[in-house]
Amino acid sequence: MINITINGLAVSVENGSTILEAARFLGFPIPTLCHHEGLTPYGACRLCVVEIGEGPGARLVSSCTYPVEEGLKVRTASERVVRARRMIIELLLASCPQSKVIQDLASAHGVRTQRFKQEYEDCVLCGLCVRMCSEQMMAGAIGFRGRGEERSIGTPFDVQSEVCRFCGGCMHVCPACQLRCTYNQPEKAVCNACANLAPPCIEKEQYGDMMCYMNPCVACEIK
């Protein structure tokens, strides 16, 4: 067991756990976007930012990837943390304003506007789907491609992957999935799992008898 202080409360937590796990275990809420139990921590969204250390040595770290260490002093909701978190939410809103998950986060943290150039991306590059595909589904059908501005998620060579089993796991975990589902244009879908998506509202002969995983039906909502 390791002794740490979270928000002034001296506690001892299990060796090898992350700050996020420890805080959640003790009931301190930390918002996350790219974190998912059962998937390796990735530290992409930075929403789980916390402040560690004291005085001038204090710094912000992503709690989902930071393992607890003896004598660590953690603040999960200091002014600096809240400010950083709101900024991250603003940036997320700037790139992906249609996402219900991000809208809910913004609402919960009192972010009403964002001050950056508005874009309408369909991906925040959180990597949840990539990890889901390789770690839980053991498929590795999709991955990151390119770098910098051109970084994107998809299948190699943009063709339907041979190892994809259309499980829909990638869509299930996606925080921006409302757009990822390309509804009646399966050829534009990121892993072509959306070809599986046959909302009852679309003509049957186009998709045959494939099953829809979304509940409630997203395609119907877009319509």
Partner: peptide, 23 residues
Amino acid sequence: ALRLVARETGRSLADIYGVATFY
């Protein structure tokens, strides 16, 4: 060649493609 590398190294093609497009 990428498909062959993926098969021989036992890594997913998505991984190999990611490396090839990153650099």
